[in-house]
Amino acid sequence: MRKYVVFALLVLSFAAGALDYGSAVSLAKERPPVKSAYLKLQDADAQLARTQADPLALKLDLIKARQERDLAEAEYRLALIRAGSEISAAYTRVLDAEAQLELARQGLDLAKQGLQIAELRYEKGGASSQDVTSARINLQSAENRFKTARSGAELARSQLVSLLGMEAGSDALEPAPLLDPPGWDALLKSLASHPDWLKPHQAEELARAAYKLLDPSYASPAQIENARTNMERAAKGAAEAERGLRLRLEQRWNDVAARRRDLELADESLQKARADLEIARKRFEAGLISSFALQNAELQTKQAALERDVAEHALLASVWSLYEAANWLPVEVFGEN
């Protein structure tokens, strides 16, 4: 009941236009793949309980039931992470697209003003016809950028609505926070809960148990040798799978580091743009540049701020990708499960 009360409150808050990142990502639990994985986990729980209560259940039956339950839990966790990552990406796309739209709108206003200035200067003999033509071309480019940005913002918002299964309101979204990934050792430990890790290791466990349960008094040498071969093959498969998963995790870890460096560079560019803007403001106050030049400097600073936000969102996406590789469920997003 509590689950549906929380869901209803989220619906009401979204209808009021109060959508924030945490509320949006928390709806990952409502995504069809996550619901399906959760039902599968419930079935596996019930099957394990039945097997444990069955006095005729064999040791291999108990191992299989426990393995199916563990795998179902791992698949539910991974489905939840993937759904959260998908919603996070859609959410930040809205932020970037709508910021780009606002920037394009201001650029369009500036281009219109630039054409007016060029035409006025041309009438007074202070500019050539080529200057007017250039200003008109700039205006046309600004109009095209605005139309493209408007379409992009509308598409991004509709994609988010489609993922959430409800209206996301028309108000500007709250900024997305950066998630801080755990340390390498914690990620390696979590890797053992990844379905792609569990499956081959469970096969190895089952093959090893089957081999140990063979009674030489009843099993033929051929059966024992076949079981031993299966056990060795399963162990080799588990080792190969683990190496591949560790390599993928390392790649995702390095990608997070690279995106963090990109963000640092974007921060530096933004700081420089702000410093340049401050100089432009002082020059404007001293009468050395026009208000049009000042507005252009302000637009350049906003562009640098947008690029910085895009870099931050790319870092956030890489963190989610790292979570998926390790099957790490961020409790700061989903709480304790």
Rank of each mutant, 00 (worst) to 15 (best):
S220H: 07
G165K: 06
G183R: 04
A186W: 00
D196C: 00
L178H: 06
P181E: 05
K189F: 13
A207S: 06
L155Y: 09
K199L: 10
N144W: 10
R208P: 04
S193W: 08
A192W: 09
S158M: 12
S170R: 12
R208C: 05
S158V: 11
G165Q: 05
L139G: 06
S141K: 14
D185L: 11
F146R: 15
Q159R: 13
P216Q: 05
R150Q: 14
A156C: 05
V161F: 07
E204V: 06
P177W: 06
A149G: 05
S151M: 10
I137K: 09
P216S: 08
V161A: 12
H201Y: 02
P216V: 07
R136S: 09
A192E: 13
L188V: 06
T148N: 09
A153M: 00
K199S: 13
G169W: 04
N138C: 00
P175R: 04
L139T: 03
D185I: 08
E143I: 07
A186R: 09
E205D: 15
P182R: 03
A207Y: 00
L188Q: 08
S162M: 09
L160M: 09
D171T: 15
L206S: 12
L179R: 04
K212S: 14
A156V: 00
E205C: 02
I137L: 13
A168L: 10
L178Y: 01
E205G: 08
L206M: 12
L198I: 08
P200Y: 04
L163N: 01
D171E: 14
D171C: 10
L206D: 08
P182S: 07
W184F: 01
L178I: 09
W197I: 06
Q140M: 12
A149M: 03
S190A: 12
L206P: 03
A219C: 01
H194K: 03
D171R: 14
K212Q: 15
S141M: 10
H201V: 02
L155I: 14
Y218W: 11
E204S: 11
L191R: 00
A203L: 10
E167R: 13
L179G: 06
L173E: 03
L191H: 02
T148P: 02
A210T: 15
N138L: 03
P216F: 02
A156T: 08
A219P: 04
L164E: 01
A186L: 08
L179N: 00
Y211D: 08
K212G: 13
D180V: 15
D171M: 12
L191F: 01
E167P: 13
T148Q: 12
R145T: 10
P200C: 03
L213Y: 06
L139F: 03
R150M: 14
M166Y: 09
V161M: 07
S151A: 13
L139C: 06
A207G: 04
A172P: 07
S170Q: 15
L139V: 02
L214R: 05
L213W: 02
S141A: 14
A186P: 05
H201M: 01
T148V: 11
A203Q: 13
L164K: 07
L160K: 04
L173F: 11
